[in-house]
Simulated scan of single mutants.
Amino acid sequence: MTTKFGFTKMNIAEFESWISNLRVARTILYVQEHHTWNPSYASCTPTNHFEVQRGMKTYHVSNNGWMDIGQHFTTFPDGSILTGRSLEQTPACILGFNSNSVCIENLGNFDTGKDVMTTAHKDTIIRMTAALCKKFGITVNSNKVVYHHWFNLTTGERNNGTKNNKTCPGTAFFGGNSVSACEQHFLPLVSATLSGAPIPAPVPANILKYVSVNTDSLNIRTGANAQSAKVSGVLPAVLGSVLRVFEVKNGWYRISGSQQHWVNGSYTLDVTRATVNATTLNVRSGPGTSFPKVGSFMKGQEVFIIDEQQGWSKISADNKWVKKEFLDVS
């Protein structure tokens, strides 16, 4: 592995080892698949990975006004992987579907007739997706591994590519960008990498509850007090991140099942994990049908409830509400 411009470059075998050992406080439920469209394969040389990644970060920060590069990882034609935004940060990749997601940008234009994905690139994308699903206990299905094409660009509503959608990750991405193409051509390859079986995603029995960070930056310490040292190599949890709580002590929360990683509970809010039980669940800007529709969820998608009013559940800090009766609490 090599590091430059704040990014780390690795091959897929290195990534598999690295991600399995990485400590991540933020709760991750979804994997997003994208293509860059531009830069495309023509932009790549055997030695310019870091320069291409820095160019994307510069564009995202200077032109889009984002805090950092949008994606967590970028895959390259030779099978290399570069890190991007910290996994503790929510990505800036799919409007309305970034919370609790990890974002993969696959460098290239994979629309029909454009870049032909290399064998090395295919292998990395499949194995990387599998490694992330294994790491975070993500079930390999089209509710959990999603394509950008399935979401309306203006509203964030999941419409499976029927109106106002990008082609991302490409009309020729592993046989196509539709839900059926994903289920027929891509997800079986990911499952096969995981010994042929989808990973179950039960809620671990030793989780006491979930909380959401309500301060800009929350330090993670080695003990349940402010005098304990910050955990080495682990970034602070950030505003809106959902954390798992395994132990409570004197107002402090242990957020790792195996390590002494603690945060001050006074800077968090309790939230409840729930699963959508309706075929399509409308998301509104307030707690009632009189409020505008701002998106939708599909059956099986998971959300975190942060407030409730008169039979409605708030599932996002930016005023997104759904009818409570269409949620099954985990």
Rank of each mutant, 00 (worst) to 15 (best):
S212P: 05
V211K: 07
G223L: 00
K299F: 03
A197Y: 12
Q301A: 11
D307G: 00
G233V: 06
G251R: 12
V271Y: 00
L194E: 06
W252P: 04
L269D: 13
T222W: 02
V234T: 09
E247V: 00
V203C: 08
V242R: 09
V248H: 08
Q184G: 06
V276Y: 06
K230W: 02
Q301E: 15
N206I: 01
I220Q: 00
R273I: 01
Q259C: 07
V242G: 01
R284K: 15
G286K: 12
S195R: 14
L281G: 03
W252A: 01
V271A: 01
Q184V: 10
A226K: 12
L208Y: 09
V276L: 05
G233A: 09
G196N: 13
S258M: 07
G223T: 05
L208F: 04
G196F: 13
G295K: 00
A237F: 07
G223Y: 06
R254C: 14
G251L: 02
K230I: 11
L239D: 13
V294F: 04
P200W: 02
S290R: 10
S217R: 14
P188V: 03
L269Q: 13
I220D: 01
S191L: 10
F304L: 05
F186Q: 00
T268Q: 08
S258A: 13
G240S: 05
G251Q: 02
R284C: 04
L281T: 02
N277T: 15
S191V: 15
R221P: 01
T215H: 07
A192D: 15
P188G: 04
S195C: 12
G251K: 12
R244Q: 14
G265M: 10
V245P: 06
T272S: 12
L243G: 00
S232D: 13
I255F: 05
E308I: 14
S290T: 11
W262S: 01
N206H: 14
K249A: 10
S258T: 15
I255Q: 03
W252S: 06
L239N: 15
G223A: 12
T193P: 10
V203Y: 04
N277L: 02
A229R: 14
A229V: 07
N264K: 06
S212A: 13
S228C: 05
A201T: 13
E302I: 13
S258K: 12
S256N: 13
T279H: 01
W262L: 02
S212E: 11
T215S: 08
P202E: 05
K299D: 01
Q184I: 04
H261R: 11
P287W: 00
S241N: 15
K299C: 06
I220M: 12
T222A: 09
P188I: 00
E247L: 08
K249Y: 14
V271R: 05
